[in-house]
Design a protein around this nucleic acid. Structure first.
Lengths: 155, 155
DNA sequence: ACAGAAAAAGATATTTTTATCTTTAATAGG
DNA sequence: CCTATTAAAGATAAAAATATCTTTTTCTGT
């Protein structure tokens, strides 16, 4: 559904939304460590996101990546479009080229509500709203420091 | 979620369930044409499915692939396990290694019900039951002959 | 001005997925 | 028994995704 690249990108943007601002930029190295992603690969992704003005950056000492207020008005869906494009999301679960309500594949009516639900989750909230929600509901972007058993309570 | 290979495989097995039996075998060429998949690639997949006794085959004139009664007692989930393994299905939508109910990623609680629902669809019905359902509800495995507009009714 | 830090850019490498090609083995029908 | 047909097996190829490396540019603090 989403490429690894895109998963890294989404988590990075949300991570930056929560932990960075114009006065507290974060370098790739740190982000990669925190999110447990390959560092040079992530650098490329951040480069791409910066090109598309989904992320801000400055070079030089104390430079790094961050989200400004404008960046935070974008959505996770914008990130997906920047990295994966929309095709991957739109394709039929069983690979039928023209699967639709009138010519449904065997799982069409299971997949469609899910897709609608997750699409609206990605598309109808700004990064700002999204990251606030993450904070308020104790959701997780990295499991670096969590070394919990399956049944354990969150820290 | 599923590789192309796996999508081809699932559709092939269901196609064979509907259109073949021990007295009416079908060659790769036909299957590939009907399902619009690359022929030699599909041949490899059918070979693999045959090795795992999910599909039957005989060589020589009038040979080809088919499902016998035993084959039809397997499930779509068995096909997935044969081609993709289970990992692809089990991984977190945003790539977190240990995402779970206690440490949920931001979309965990949207994804989990969907996964459960589609997993039970794949795991709790035999291929026989599955293919009967396809026939009864006019679902589609190929769109080869359908050249319909989005809004058109099924043939 | 200079040195160091960090991203940008471009080139390269590796791995996985997808796809094809060639040869061999089995089978049925004449 | 011979030939045509078809899957099996193995080798190879192409494309895409993932990952890394090297050089350049930009910026900051001194």
């Amino acid at each position: 559904m989403l490429s690894n690249a895109c998963k890294y990108a989404i988590r990075s943007v949300l991570y930056l939304a929560i932990h960075s601002d114009a006065t507290a930029k974060i370098g790739v190295k740190t982000i990669a460590q925190e999110l447990e992603t390959p560092q040079p690969f992530l650098a490329k992704l951040l480069q791409q996101l910066t090109r598309d003005t989904l992320v801000s950056s400055t070079k030089g000492p104390n430079g790094g990546f961050y989200l400004d207020d404008n960046n935070k008005q974008n959505t996770v869906w914008d990130v997906i479009k920047s990295i994966d494009g929309t095709k991957k999301f739109d394709t039929c679960f069983l690979g039928l080229s023209k699967c639709n309500n009138n010519n449904p594949c065997p799982v069409h009516f299971i997949v469609v509500p899910f897709k609608e639900s997750i699409l609206s989750n990605f598309r109808d909230k700004t990064i700002l709203e999204y990251s606030d929600e993450i904070k308020n509901t104790q959701q997780v972007l990295s499991l670096k420091d969590l070394n919990l058993l399956d049944g354990a309570a969150p820290k």
